[in-house]
């Protein structure tokens, strides 16, 4: 499998895997090691413990501040979907494997299922809902449409955001870079050919599946 391009942003608590906080650590030796480091970090930061009850949280989403009252254990993904009804990002694997929940935080693509909402405070959060302006699709979204890069569409919003972050960093990618850089998003219907063409079309290259 290709290397994943997603990076979790540095967190105030140095605990980016809520799975650990929930006591549901992954059954992986590397996961256990990460968990031990996280435990130490959490102990160090003990003075900052908040919750477990609801706490006020402010999130800057698509340029607008949103005030919420949520438990600290609520993920960024669940906050977006359940509290703000921004349901573009989807919950699929719920543990950083599939990319269906991808949003952009501080300019980097992030799995929203694996970041707590409280960690995202003070950061610039971009979701798929903010990509089209006044109802007009972003060129990348239009390229997805043109190249039939969606079937059931459930991976699509996450894929669009991953492609957006990828293109911001690699405005003129080769197909090899596309294949390597977008390995962090999975599709079940098999739309990868269209996705790759959509990214290339957006970069001004071609778009081999567009209308003939």
């Amino acid at each position: 499998m290709p290397k994943r391009d997603h990076a979790g942003p540095p967190s105030e608590l140095d605990v980016s895997r809520r799975g650990f906080l929930k006591g549901a650590g992954a059954a992986l030796s590397s996961g256990i090691v990460a968990g031990a480091e996280a435990l130490e970090a959490a102990n160090r930061a003990a003075a900052k413990i908040i919750g477990p009850g609801k706490t006020p949280v402010t999130l800057k989403i698509n340029g607008v501040n949103k005030a919420l009252n949520i438990e600290p254990r609520v993920t960024l993904l669940d906050a977006l979907r359940d509290e703000l009804e921004l349901t573009g990002a989807k919950r699929v694997c719920d543990r950083s494997s599939c990319g269906a929940c991808t949003v952009i935080v501080s300019g980097k693509s992030v799995y929203a299922c694996s970041m707590l909402a409280i960690e995202a405070q003070g950061k610039n959060i971009e979701t798929v809902e903010g990509l089209s302006v006044a109802g007009k699709l972003h060129p990348l979204q239009q390229a997805f449409v043109d190249n039939d890069a969606q079937q059931c569409g459930y991976c699509t919003p996450g894929f669009v955001m991953a492609c957006k972050a990828f293109l911001d960093k690699n405005p003129n990618p080769t197909i090899e870079q596309v294949r390597k850089g977008l390995g962090g998003n999975l599709c079940r219907c098999g739309t990868y050919v269209g996705v790759a063409e959509a990214v290339l079309q957006t970069a001004g290259k071609k778009g081999g599946r567009a209308n003939a």
Binding site: T87, L137, Q141, F144, V145, D148, G153, Y154, T156
Partner: peptide, 16 residues
């Protein structure tokens, strides 16, 4: 022909 519901899917408007 591009699918008529693709714009909803790429923009997150499509409700499942």
């Amino acid at each position: 022909i591009s699918k008529s519901d693709s714009p909803d899917k790429v923009s997150g408007r499509a409700k499942y």
